[in-house]
Design a protein around this nucleic acid. Sequence first.
DNA 1: TTGAAAGCGTTACCAC
DNA 2: GTGGTAACGCTTTCAA
Lengths: 338, 338
Amino acid sequence: MAATLETVAKKAGVSVSAVSKALRGRSNIGEATKRKIDQVARQLRYRPNASARALASGRTETIGVVIRELNYLSDSYFGTILSGIAKVSDQNDMGLIFGRSLPEKRQEPEFLRMAMEARVDGMIIIDQVIPKKHLSRLADMRFPVVLVDQQIPGLSLPVVRINYQKVARQAASHLIGLGHRRIAVFSGVQGKYKFRAEIEGVKEAFGRGGLGFDETLLVTGEDGFMYAGAYQHVERMLRTAEPPTAFLTFTNGATAAVHHYARLAGLRVPEDISIAGFYSGGPEMTDIRPDFQVPTHEAGVRSCQLVMDLVAGQVSTSEIVLEASFDPRNGCGRSAGL
Amino acid sequence: MAATLETVAKKAGVSVSAVSKALRGRSNIGEATKRKIDQVARQLRYRPNASARALASGRTETIGVVIRELNYLSDSYFGTILSGIAKVSDQNDMGLIFGRSLPEKRQEPEFLRMAMEARVDGMIIIDQVIPKKHLSRLADMRFPVVLVDQQIPGLSLPVVRINYQKVARQAASHLIGLGHRRIAVFSGVQGKYKFRAEIEGVKEAFGRGGLGFDETLLVTGEDGFMYAGAYQHVERMLRTAEPPTAFLTFTNGATAAVHHYARLAGLRVPEDISIAGFYSGGPEMTDIRPDFQVPTHEAGVRSCQLVMDLVAGQVSTSEIVLEASFDPRNGCGRSAGL
DNA sequence: TTGAAAGCGTTACCAC
DNA sequence: GTGGTAACGCTTTCAA
């Protein structure tokens, strides 16, 4: 059916290897024959067979992206990381395939198969809750892997991570400096590096400010799904005897929800309540100007560059830490009416 | 590095073909040798090379899923279709890879490459706005393809689609029957089959009820991103001189948004406003009981089964139409206080 | 039941 | 420049 190198070679009256070279733009081929070959190939709609190419060359020209579940891609946290990855992989003509990290019915998680069956040349792992033992397997194989936003002691895999702790500390300190004493904190999934770092940063600031950490003012949940739920929590909190005067939100969804709630409830920001909001880009916040800028896109770019260096055999930096910025201008520019 | 069939064969003292058969559970192999081979393979951590296997067998054991952009997966419309696909593909030990349908910098969209380079055995196309010319290419190649929720005249590709038109007509008729005259309609992206079918159904009902279709009461937008935006529209509409008394929402996001808005604004449903809401499952509506049940998961299941039949060479039904159900019980159970 | 050998469609090396 | 020809790691006849 489909044209092969041989088909093209025969029709063009040249050898298979000539066609192979010509079509891949190698220099050791005559100008005239190349033209002829190109023409025949186009006419026959020739396409190289990906499996054959991978088998012969040892490279799949594909990198794997590992996330927990596929619908996590919806979250703009993942979405913007991904757009960074896609940008770099496109530039380098590398394909992208996605693997779920959950084990499902097989013993082995899908991403381990991707590596062991040589379906990809390298991979980027964005899921933050993969058991260390699985990650170690990859390290043992010396398979090119880059972890994003993870911090696992005793594991020697390259990492690209964002310094959430510092920016969280800055934001919390700022709110405290404005006089806030009751600050609600919305973060993501407990146990993840991102969550741990954020809470750590907040606690540092609270400690310095002489504040205790009030668990009743902490809201957690799946990053991508916090918008709807956040409404209820804001409403509930504001009805208590001692309502929070400021909100510190570490997910896009929560940031958007708190801002939207305030607007709907007629609360002025920051006169009535302060909002220090996380922002990683994405479609849900076109109408909001948050105070954090979190370089998730950049994290994607860097992780993809890193994994491609690894694939090319170039040893690279093993840990890249990206700084987020906090610029109190929109949601918490001045002191709330305390 | 990695173990191959030959490595295993040598160590087990048998032939390469014996190992191949044993590991794939073929029956023409001795019980004892099989045990021996299994043991050696496990010890060596042998994994078949995917490219080699695909090249030799002619099958990649992978099917491609085509969507417009990767972050569309976030939408529970896609998400639930996908869960149906994943369920069936998992059962049949088929891998899944995702392709974007947008052309990007290359002339050819990624999904055409997937087919022409034989990266997948078949594919399911969920994007509804792919130019017919590209789809025709696949049809010409006789490549196993199934379209989901599409209706393209003059194209002979198998389709699985949901009958949005009928359920839209039912819902609109019901609202009209309750006495509503001003009904706001929230649908998805203009031009898509889903949108066209829904509007068509609504117009039929409006026509029968002697109502005109008021464009100012129509809200459109990206399916997955309608939650946040919907708030503003509801608010705006309810402030007009002649506000709508009912809402007919065809995306999960809009349904959730209208319900949440009503709750927050202190509007009783259905006493103050009626809401006829679309629901395809998904995480954002745990607190809402909508009136539509749309079999998107089922559509995923059926499309995957269909594509696998096609791959296996079994000719199958070329069009499967799934019915959605409308059960006025929650959001529009009784007449609004007109 | 077992094994030898011929592909599968490329790439890459090595003569010419 | 160009063309033969071994790999690449697997599946699949076909004999034994």
